[in-house]
Design a protein around this nucleic acid. Structure first.
Length: 601
DNA sequence: GCCGTTTTCGGCCCGACTGTTTTCAGTCG
């Protein structure tokens, strides 16, 4: 997640910034030897502040800071200090006592607060580079509790952190996961295997990949897994869990359980950790104990029967909570109150409104795309090839667009089982205008607008550019609004909050691009946009037949953004979608191609 | 340090694996 601290420098500290200060205090206190519940209080307060919907500066004004879960008298005073001065006396004192590089040490896998404090105190090691040198020179093994093996593990940890910066983009993690699961499934004792952890929760980057296996022979399956050729190093190998490194990404953890325990293990191993803690607290209050082996009535040794995760939630008096929202980000409270929304499912989506064909840079014929969409049960698709400015993608001139209309009309007459809308992904120019005339756009069924050439982006106000495009009466959707490529390219410098306001004002929808490389808008903005009444269109942006299947990935990301079918543009029926378009375009004095027979004015 | 349909004090989620330990500490999820 991007840090928003820098942005907040002009206004009062944001909730994220306050949470970061609490996390920093927690880390520094731990390095000083603070343990247990006090530490946990700092972490919980940080988590609670970060996910609080209202700015704490507002709560402070009303004297209501202590209404936030985890904030008592002492923390409220610290929040007040941070709001006024961006720091507080305790934090300043800790920062003076402990060099900043020590915090970096704790990020190394295998190094915790105790080890970091030890090497600092005994060896004067104050950052990762110094720790690496100390390990290579054999100076670590002289310390109490450290030996050659731990020194080697620390070196491997530093290497891993450097190579992956701790996290792998979800697209790569999905690919690695699929490969490993396929390999695992070859073992005859494997009953079932799937990815859990942050991949199942659809986080955009994955730290450790977590896999879960159901089998009657856990130890045997784990040994088999650890011996796979893809595995470059075995970190740990026990009776029920193994940790390894694979060449294509960082660490992979595998947990093997017997089939009856699978639901509880899946729940536990999916996390998030914070969500699990909340569930175990609820379990305890109800006289249960919840762990990765099951839900147990107090004093009993055999678990409450559960065929799936839903049974465990039900025993706790809760509805099933989809994995994508298990972040202790309001979902537990909503579930308790019976107000957890029905989030969007793949079966809710009736169409895909962003596809490329051979006419521009796609790899398949429109006919093939339509046939594949029909097989997937989609009622409609929009073919949205690039417009002429995108020369390297063979963008279409108005003349070519009109030729394409003829082909699409013919295919629709033929009837391929899905209605093909004739659209275009129109290029947004530097000043926010479109590269294709209104008169041409008026003859299309659907228009999405996008930025692909953020050249001179320092010179161009990207927010002004995109808000102007979103305000264009003929633009239905802004595609991949922030332009990010996960793990490769930072988002454009666009103020998404203002883009959402502009879209709300004009009735334009925003895209959640389903490509696992993009997932753009990011889920937190999807939640924000939908709350502002902006429709979200979950589109694949497919450039070939295979990528049409990315719609399922997009739906997962959409759930992570708390998207309901009601707020999803392409959950509408074809008639509903065309009506939505007619009304918003007609209200602004334009006409839409689908409004009536062509040629009518 | 926080919190209360058990409580304003005494609780606070639960367990696996490794290394360097002769009984457990540290780390991780």
């Amino acid at each position: 997640m991007g840090k928003t601290e820098e942005k907040g420098l002009t206004g009062p500290p944001t909730n994220d910034e306050i949470a970061a200060r609490f996390e920093e205090m927690a880390s520094l206190l731990e390095l000083k030897g603070t343990e247990g519940y006090k530490l946990r209080a700092y972490h919980r307060a940080a988590q609670s502040v970060a996910s609080h919907p209202e700015p704490l500066s507002e709560l402070s004004r009303r004297g209501e800071l202590q209404t936030v879960r985890g904030i008592g008298a002492s923390f409220a005073a610290k929040v007040e200090e941070i709001l006024k001065t961006r720091t507080c006396p305790l934090l300043e004192r800790l920062r003076r006592e402990i060099p900043p590089g020590i915090l970096e040490l704790v990020r190394i896998p295998g190094v915790g607060a105790k080890t970091a404090a030890l090497v600092w105190r005994e060896l004067g090691v104050a950052d990762a580079a110094a720790l690496e040198a100390a390990a290579k020179e054999g100076r670590l093994a002289s310390l109490k509790g450290l030996g050659d093996k731990r020194a080697a593990a620390i070196l491997a940890g530093i290497e891993s952190l450097r190579r992956w910066e701790g996290r792998t983009p979800i697209a790569r993690a999905m690919a690695v996961s699929e490969t490993l699961l396929r390999e695992l499934a070859r073992h005859p004792a494997v009953v079932r295997a799937e990815a859990a952890g942050s991949l199942r929760r659809m986080r955009e980057t994955v730290g450790d990949l977590d896999l879960l296996v159901a089998t009657e022979s856990p130890a045997e399956v784990l040994r088999f897994f650890a011996s796979l050729p893809l595995v470059s190093e075995v970190i740990a190998l026990g009776e029920t869990k193994a940790s390894v490194r694979v060449t294509a990404m960082g660490q992979v953890d595998v947990r093997a359980v017997r089939p009856p325990g699978y639901p509880a293990a899946l729940l536990y191993f999916t996390g998030s950790k914070e969500h699990n803690v909340r569930l175990r607290e609820i379990a305890k209050a109800l006289g249960y104990k919840l762990n990765e082996y099951g839900l147990f009535r107090e004093g009993e040794t055999s678990p409450v029967a559960a065929a799936g995760e839903a049974d465990i939630y039900a025993a706790l008096g809760l509805p099933f909570v989809p994995p994508e929202v298990r972040e202790d980000d309001g979902e537990v409270e909503a579930a308790i109150a019976g107000e957890l929304p029905a989030f969007v499912e793949l079966s809710d989506l009736k169409g895909d409104l962003h596809l490329h064909s051979l006419w521009s840079d796609g790899r398949d014929e429109i006919r093939a795309l339509a046939e594949e969409a029909a097989r997937a049960g989609l009622e409609y698709i929009a073919v949205t090839d690039h417009s002429r400015s995108l020369a390297f993608a063979r963008g279409l001139t108005p003349e070519r667009l009109m030729q394409q209309a003829v082909e699409i009309a013919a295919l629709n007459r033929e009837g391929l089982g899905t209605r093909i809308l004739h659209g275009c992904e129109v290029e947004v120019l530097g000043d926010g205008t479109l590269d294709t005339p209104d008169a041409v756009l008026e003859r299309l069924d659907f228009v999405i607008a996008a930025v692909h050439s953020p050249v001179r982006r320092e010179a161009v106000d990207m927010t002004a550019r995109l808000t102007r495009a979103a305000g264009h009466p003929l633009v239905d959707v802004i595609a991949h609004p922030t332009g990010r490529i996960i793990g490769q390219r930072e988002p454009y410098p666009v103020d998404v909050g203002r883009l959402i306001e502009a879209a709300a004002a004009s009735g334009c929808a925003l895209e959640l691009n389903a490509s696992p490389h993009r997932l753009d808008l990011a889920p937190q903005y999807v939640r924000q946009a939908a709350a502002a009444g902006v429709k979200i269109s979950v589109n694949t942006d497919a450039h070939d037949l295979r990528s049409l299947a990315d719609l399922a990935v997009g739906v997962g990301a959409a759930r992570r953004g708390w998207l309901t079918p009601r707020a999803a543009l392409n959950a509408m029926s074809l008639d509903g979608l065309l009506k939505w378009r007619r009304e918003r375009i007609g209200a602004r004095g334009y006409r839409s191609a689908s409004a009536g027979p062509p040629g009518e004015v």
